[in-house]
Design a protein around this nucleic acid. Sequence first.
DNA 1: TAAGTTGTAATAAAATTGGTTACATGTAGT
DNA 2: ACTACATGTAACCAATTTTATTACAACTTA
Lengths: 145, 145
Amino acid sequence: MSISSRFAVGIHILTLLEVNKDEVNSSEFIAASVNTNPVVIRKIMGMLKKAELVYVRPGVAGAELARKLDEITLLDVYKAVEAVPENELFSVHGNPNPQCTVGRNIQAAVLPIFAGAQAVMEKALAHVTIEDIVQSIEEQDKQIE
Amino acid sequence: MSISSRFAVGIHILTLLEVNKDEVNSSEFIAASVNTNPVVIRKIMGMLKKAELVYVRPGVAGAELARKLDEITLLDVYKAVEAVPENELFSVHGNPNPQCTVGRNIQAAVLPIFAGAQAVMEKALAHVTIEDIVQSIEEQDKQIE
DNA sequence: TAAGTTGTAATAAAATTGGTTACATGTAGT
DNA sequence: ACTACATGTAACCAATTTTATTACAACTTA
């Protein structure tokens, strides 16, 4: 299956917090930009908060980034929103038959390869920061008239 | 979410076809090695067949590899079993608000990054063949006593 | 105290996964 | 031709995940 869109929404939220930092970013406002329900935003915001990427307080409207723009990578967001369960991008069938040569060795054969593929993917995400996204968005927006 | 274990099972099947090539590899036999239902195997086998990775005929017991060992990459298997829908490893929320700077540019900002991350991951899979898996399995098995 | 916000539980509909039964279709051997 | 057995599929199911939604408790500020 695809990786949850929570990841893309998380990036959207953090980017918005920067671009719109002079206004009050309530969950309702953010939800209007993402085009979803405010509760969805609050849930994702809770995950971002737990990962110490944003600063939010119960009762008080608006959220802010908890780190500098270039200190939040997409990998941070990816992990924060649990885009993938338990660090397992690939799932492996459990309990193959230990009486079969292939069955008793397939997991050990396949796991390091999956780990490697996952690692290069995550590294690609780690090279991009929210600052890059903000820049990209502002540049693109200039070209729209 | 995680990538379907169909991928791992597909690798298991192809590896088994080689390691056990002197016997008849019926769906029932393969299912016993994978430890699942024969119908699950036949469904995945159908996908591998469609991708021309295996040779199977209705009515006749046993399947065989349709290519040489080193001409089947894990990426071939990954695509054959549709481990990920429509080539979209990452999903992006639809319809963000076009009246918001972030909303109207987030997709364009994020898509190339997702495509890049997906590409490096797939490249890692493309570098490994079923031959590598077979070797790895036979080497590991020697060390078990 | 009142108004508005966040945090969270409960629920729901849709989609996907892995499994299972049932059976039609196809092949080979007698 | 008949039998035995295998593959190919359709239909269905339970479990899980995703996204959306309602409801409401807890909290903050004016």
